[in-house]
Amino acid sequence: MLVENKTTETYQAIHIPVSSNSPPGNVFQRFASYFWYYVICGVSISIKDMIKDIYVKAPVIEIEKLKKRSDQVVVMTGGPRGIGFDIVKKLLQLDYTVILGVRNISASQNGIDKIRSLGITSGGVKFLNLDLKSLNSVRQFAKEVLTCEEGSRIDLLLNNAGSVNGNYEITPDNMESTFQVNYLSHFLLTNLLLPRIKETAAKKGGEPCQIVNTSSHVQNACKIKFNELETSKVYVPFKSYCKSKLYQVVHVKTLENKFREEKINVHAYAVHPGEIATDIWDTVGIFAKILQPVMNLGRTTDGAANTVLYPVLTPEVGAKFGGEYFESGQVKPSNKQANKLEIQEKLWERSLELTKDFNEN
């Protein structure tokens, strides 16, 4: 078992957010877009999903009956809070070594201490600093993962961190922040870690390595427009969030196609954890506050964690349905655009172009 790394941050990302009181689009365009994405799409889809979560239960994973992963390593973005808390708890129960990319090591250590206070002594945790609003930070994080002792193998990559930015913000890389945090930084991180993941898969024999993108059912509410990926002609927070979650689904399908072509034993999945009342919605506004009491009736963070980990910890499912989009432990239809090869190829090439100065692969 590894001992938690309680050292101070060795890398501090340069983060100079640029917010604007006048986001792209005039007041009429923003109102129309806001009405469509929040009232028509957001509220209707969310209510439908919350009702579904009440009646369609999360998959049950009996952690105590699963074999231990004492020699296996997980790289995960985001700290042990909200859904992440229960994901990390289950991974430690299975004796994984978990490398966590977080913005605040001290706060994340508090989460691990809480898990340990529950009597969970197995598994190990290593913290490394990661700011998904900085591509340079992503590259530095990947470098530290690949050079540390714990990162000598990577069995599972969990692209779990995400945000909904209530204000229009341009990152230091000159990109809209929700797009970069939820999608592009994870795209870059996955590419930088892929060689190690492939090496690990080659050594494991029959058991695959895996990549999970924590997506959302709202990926069905939008369309990809390649003339406004990293920027927005008309900015509405929920619109940017929906699109970023669609990009994650496309990313998974593209990866799976490449793994099959190369005959590599790695699988990728996009997973919707359910409607969960976590602090990710704090900046969205009044609609999230109105819906929160209904959210509390549905899925717990423990159930959401089971949903995210289901294809990973259920071999007969994961091996058969690589590249698929999951809800409640079941493969569900994704946005039709995600299945189009021309969309997959175009998004891949555009993403490579946007990350070319940081992508060593």
Rank of each mutant, 00 (worst) to 15 (best):
I47M: 06
V27G: 12
N26F: 02
K48A: 14
M50P: 01
I54F: 10
N21T: 12
K57C: 14
K52C: 15
I61V: 12
N26D: 13
N26V: 07
D53M: 05
S46P: 14
C41V: 03
Y37W: 11
A32N: 07
V39P: 00
G42S: 05
I47S: 04
S33M: 10
V60L: 13
P23A: 01
Y55L: 10
D53W: 00
V60D: 12
S44N: 12
Y37Q: 08
F35N: 05
S44R: 13
V60W: 10
I40G: 00
K52F: 12
Y34H: 11
A32D: 03
W36S: 01
V56Q: 12
A32K: 12
N21R: 08
I45W: 06
S33H: 08
N26C: 05
N26W: 00
M50Q: 09
A32V: 11
F35G: 04
S22R: 11
E62G: 02
Y38A: 04
V60H: 07
E62H: 06
Y55G: 15
R30P: 13
G42C: 02
G25N: 03
V39I: 13
V43W: 04
Q29H: 06
F31D: 06
V27E: 09
S46M: 05
I51D: 12
D49Y: 08
I40S: 03
R30Q: 09
K57W: 00
W36G: 01
S20F: 03
F35Y: 10
I63E: 05
E64R: 01
E64H: 09
Y55S: 15
Y37C: 00
S44A: 07
Y37L: 00
P23C: 04
D53T: 04
S20T: 11
W36V: 11
E64W: 04
N26G: 11
F28K: 13
